[in-house]
Design a protein around this nucleic acid. Structure first.
Length: 588
RNA sequence: GCGCCCGUAGCUCAGUUGGAUAGAGCACCUGCCUUCUAAGCAGGUUGUCGCGCGUUCGAUUCGCGCCGGGCGCACCA
């Protein structure tokens, strides 16, 4: 068991011994400022507060029941009632030696694995994936990797936009203005052109719009020709998706598009009507406020000039078509029946938070039993901005295509690699540039708190100094370099650690917090915690690297101990980056 | 108008149940390569945490009210 968990469970038992009825699940032990110790708990203060006890007295009482001498020095009470823990050197080295033997990598599998459906990326058919998709795709992938690493059962599902009114226009364009040669050269660009041309025509001419609508109606009715064209458009799009996901290294367990749920949409609406959850209004069918929430908190109400008026979620349009709330409901029904998840995570732009608020409430009304056992979470994120503070666009004002963005990342990285490591063969420089370029884009996207907007900057993400992917991969490559240089056979499994230098101790202690960080990422669904942990790890490693010679250590025992420390650091760096969806290189 | 999100160093951003003297990178200054990758390291400078009030032993964090920015408000998703 990792030392901090040992401390935590022992502390919880001690608290229970003092206050038998206390809820000890909130009694946590966290890393702290080294001047106070290695770990700290401030939980006794809030516990004392709710019970109107003297916090320092409570701490003293708990301390008499607390024996953590196996892993800690004497526990200290500090300030208003903090408990400060300092690890024993033996506990530290034993934990590292166990890791060296391959018994763990500073994290534990979840005691109670959850089944989690994670819905992310969701590109649209017939449209190019653009820079915005990096957010849902990167965050979603990092989360699925984290949850899997911690032993949860994860079902990733790409809810592709393969259905909707845009297909009327696309079908019309396909039939009337399709350029076959262009389609073969660049299918997505041609499909995009079709849509733009017809869309403009429809805006200008109601008759064109009617034509497009009738194509849509035919598709919906199962017209053989239209269905065949629609399927071809999906197939062409899928090629694009496969290429992009292949480059990004993102995998899905399922890619059940919106159209998959078509057969059940009518039933969903009928069921909502039968149960009195939805009702007809102005020819459409919608879910309205049930009056159980105060108006301010009720997403089904909106204030217009001082009056609260209905703002329903429509589930059927007046023309009989369905809305995306309907699809989302059919989708959740399918997911419940198929996987019985404990949790469903939607990694979707924050601008849709209103939709999710309504959708989650409808779910609660529609499936009250399931709502008790399945938690729905909207993992929202902000926009990517250009350096002018406006949404990130190309110079000509178009959206930035994801494929082109990744190309540019690799090109820019290649220039830098060629400059810094001109001696490496071209093929290797290309491979380094691929890893660094893609890693830089992904890392820059995962680093900020996901809910805030961030400014896209090539220079910052590709910089070798600062909190960037190149810096982290560089730290990894330097460790690997040591192992290439050393002559004798080094066997990590038999390593005995002896930690003396402050840099060694600081690095070693930081390794111990890998699992804590992974758990925080899984708990709050925030990959940036892991980014910051790895940045600190790389920093502590380079500090160690500068101050503690490894291959030229004063004696063999120190050398082997340091080699082991290097190896463990490399493993955590590699595992951590991999969990963020970022590859590493052995040399750069 | 109403709701949601945001406001932290000159710039870009972190800040994990409310916790100890609020952190990092960039920029700026000073050192360190005949020694494991200097794409690096060590040190220095930088703050009314938008403003005010409240809750608390303790508030960047919670509540209320302002100010400033972004986004969303029935047949698109």
């Amino acid at each position: 068991m990792l030392p901090h968990k040992k401390i935590e469970s022992t502390l919880q038992a001690a608290v229970r011994a003092v206050l038998a009825d206390a809820d000890v699940s909130a009694i946590l032990v966290r890393p702290c400022d080294p001047k106070f110790g290695d770990y700290q708990s401030n939980a006794l203060m809030s516990l004392a507060k709710t019970r109107k006890l003297n916090p320092r007295q409570l701490a003293t009482d708990v301390l008499t029941k607390l024996d953590v001498s196996a892993v800690c020095e004497k526990v200290e009470i500090a300030g208003a009632g903090f408990l400060n823990f300092r690890l024993k050197n033996t506990a530290l080295t034993q934990t590292l030696e166990a890791a060296a033997r391959g018994e763990h990598l500073f994290f534990d599998k979840a005691a109670q694995p959850k089944t989690v459906v994670i819905d992310f990326s969701s590109p649209n058919v017939a449209k190019p994936m653009h820079v915005g998709h990096i957010r849902s795709t990167g965050i979603g992938d990092a989360l699925q990797r984290t949850l899997r690493l911690l032993g949860h059962r994860v079902i990733s599902d790409n809810h592709i936009g393969d259905w909707g009114t845009q297909f009327g226009k696309l079908l019309l364009g396909w039939k009337q203005i399709l350029n076959r040669a262009d389609l073969e050269r660049d299918a997505i660009a041609e499909l995009e052109r079709l849509y733009k041309v017809i869309n403009a025509e429809c805006d200008a001419n109601p008759l064109r719009l009617e034509e497009a609508k009738s194509e849509l109606v035919k598709l919906q009715a199962g017209d053989a020709e239209n269905v065949a064209i629609w399927k071809e458009m999906i197939a062409l799009s899928q090629k694009q998706f496969d290429t992009i996901y292949g480059r990004l290294g993102v995998k899905f367990d399922f890619a059940l598009g919106e159209s998959f749920y078509n057969p059940w949409l009518g039933e969903v609406v009928a069921d909502l009507l039968t149960r009195g959850i939805a009702r007809e209004s102005e020819g459409a069918v919608g879910v309205f406020s049930d009056g159980t929430l105060p108006p301010k908190e009720d997403p089904f109400l909106v204030n217009r000039d001082g009056e609260w008026v209905a703002d329903p979620a429509l589930v059927r349009k007046s023309d009989g078509g369905f809305n995306y709330t309907t699809t989302d409901l059919a989708t959740i029904d399918y997911r419940l029946k198929t996987w019985s998840p404990d949790e469903i995570i939607y990694v979707v732009d924050d601008r849709q938070s209103g939709h999710f608020k309504k959708f989650f409430l409808i779910f609660g009304r529609w499936k009250p039993d399931a709502a008790k056992t399945t938690k729905l979470v909207h993992v929202g994120f902000g926009k990517i901005m250009g350096d002018d503070g406006k949404p990130f666009k190309t110079r000509s004002g178009d959206t930035v295509k994801l494929g082109e963005l990744l190309d540019e990342a690799e090109e820019r990285a290649y220039k830098i690699v060629s400059e810094k490591s001109a001696e490496l063969p071209e093929a290797q420089r290309k491979e380094i540039a691929r890893v660094i370029g893609l890693g830089a884009v992904k890392y820059a996207d995962l680093l900020p708190n996901r809910q805030s907007d961030y400014i896209f900057s090539w220079d910052k993400m590709l910089a070798l100094q600062g909190n960037t992917a190149p810096y982290l991969v560089y730290a990894y490559a330097r460790i690997k370099s040591i192992f290439r240089k050393q002559n004798s056979e080094f066997r990590i499994q038999n390593s005995e650690l002896k930690l003396a230098a402050p840099e060694e101790l600081t690095l070693a202690k930081h390794l111990l917090n890998f699992g804590l960080t992974l758990e925080a990422v899984a708990e709050e669904l925030r990959p940036n915690y892991l980014c910051n942990y790895l940045f600190e790890l790389a920093g502590k490693f380079t500090s160690f690297y500068e101050n503690c010679p490894v291959l030229k250590a004063e004696d063999e025992a120190t050398k082997n101990s340091r080699l082991a420390l290097c190896d463990l650091t490399a493993r955590v760096l590699k595992q951590g980056l991999e969990t963020l969806g970022i590859e590493t290189v052995e040399q750069m």
